[in-house]
Amino acid sequence: MKKFTCIVCPISCSLAVQAEGGGDITVTGSKCDRGKAYAKDEYLAPKRVITTTVKIDGADIALLPVIGTAPVPKELLRTCLRHLYGIKVTAPVRMGDVIERDILGSGVDIVAARSAVIKKG
């Protein structure tokens, strides 16, 4: 059995997932179906949204915040972050610009989470 705190809503139910024979799983402790779905995902294939920064040249800011367009499998999170540390972009950048398409074959794009203009002077 595995236990989670549900993060779907502020009620924060204490969820327990039990694997049954034949690949079935049961979720207890949830007050709603969204919580049940979250617990199942979290048990079978946990996912996380990548948010971090990448280096940027010639901009009015030192680092460009970026975000994934969808969550990636949890086990890919740190590999993706390491990959993004090696990336450098150049100003100007508009929020939503794709910084890395299909990161590590996950199907998720990494996009700029803010805009950056060219530094004056």
Binding site: V49, T51, T52, T53, P65, V66, I67, M95, A113, R114, S115
Partner: peptide, 26 residues
Amino acid sequence: CVHDGFGLLRFKKQMSGSQYAQQFAD
């Protein structure tokens, strides 16, 4: 705030803090 979790009530989606700020600043 480069992490996400902003804007769920107003925009019904998960945004990072910087996205939320940029949307208003624009």
